[in-house]
């Protein structure tokens, strides 16, 4: 990753908060996501990681503050145009496939965009996740790992600028975890897709990410380059979390 790319933010978050009822689940003073990087968000459950991801996906508006995406600011009551929103896609912990064939699942995002000639793109996406052979199989006959790879194929078929991953490998066997990590790394390297990965697995963060942010109670406690984050954390709470000593 070159230095020039790392200085070009695709997202810029300012004074962002999210409140559900009485609870403030997110309170971020500032956060930048650089174009073409892999950023991992780590932290215990309930720390606001998934909420942040939903805001980055424009599925929910912030309660306060602004999200700048590709140079345009979106405040509390402004959501991006469909065309912009469609450059970001998320894969969640559960694959949430449609009750159709693997092929139709992978083609879904392209069809939403009114693309008719989806054949080559779907084929490539399925090849990327190693499932060309299962194209005609019904989605719900797949194993957990295969299903998650189809979910990934469905997301990458649309060539998103940003791919958000919310615990994509929780509950999967090590073989599929390895496959999926390889797929997203290749995607980042070869196509320059910006990746934001939410994980409670610090080993995965270490393996994949270039930068890591540690969230606790909706706030970013510490953020840095992956080496520095793990080898020389500044905050005592980060150290405790990395050592697996965080008592909750």
């Amino acid at each position: 990753m070159s230095e020039a790319r790392l200085s070009d933010p695709i997202y810029r978050l300012k004074n962002l908060t999210k409140v559900y009822g009485e609870r403030r689940v997110l309170n971020i003073a500032t956060l930048e996501v650089y174009r073409g990087e892999i950023l991992a968000l780590v932290g215990p459950s309930g720390s606001g990681k998934s909420t942040l991801l939903r805001l980055l996906n424009f599925l929910e508006p912030p309660s306060e503050g602004v999200i700048e995406f590709e140079g345009v600011e979106y405040g509390v009551n402004q959501s991006p145009k469909l065309e912009k929103r469609r450059q970001v896609v998320a894969v969640f912990q559960r694959p949430m496939l449609l009750n159709r064939s693997v092929w139709d699942n992978a083609a879904y995002g392209l069809r939403l965009r009114g693309e008719h000639d989806t054949r080559s793109q779907v084929q490539r996406a399925l090849a990327q996740v190693g499932l060309e052979g299962l194209a005609q199989q019904r989605a719900h006959t797949l194993s957990g790992g295969e299903a998650q790879r189809v979910a990934l194929a469905r997301a990458i078929a649309i060539h998103p600028q940003v791919l958000l991953l919310d615990e994509p490998t929780a509950n999967l066997d090590p073989y599929n975890v390895g496959l999926i990590e390889g797929i997203v790394q290749r995607l980042n390297r070869e196509q320059g897709t910006t990746l934001v990965l939410v994980t409670h697995n610090i080993f995965q963060a270490r393996r994949l990410a270039q930068r890591v942010a540690f969230l606790l109670d909706g706030q970013i406690i510490e953020m840095g380059e992956v080496g520095q984050f793990f080898d020389a954390p500044q905050d005592a709470r980060t150290r405790a979390f990395i050592r697996g000593e965080m008592i909750y």
Binding site: N57, L82, V89, A90, F92, M96, L98, Y108, A155, I158
Partner: peptide, 21 residues
């Protein structure tokens, strides 16, 4: 599953497309 709707919107569905799906 209520979460399906969120996934569909995330994939770029309009609210109407999500409802149809």
């Amino acid at each position: 599953d209520p979460q399906l709707r969120q996934q569909l919107l995330s994939l770029g569905a309009t609210p109407r497309q999500a409802a149809v799906t």
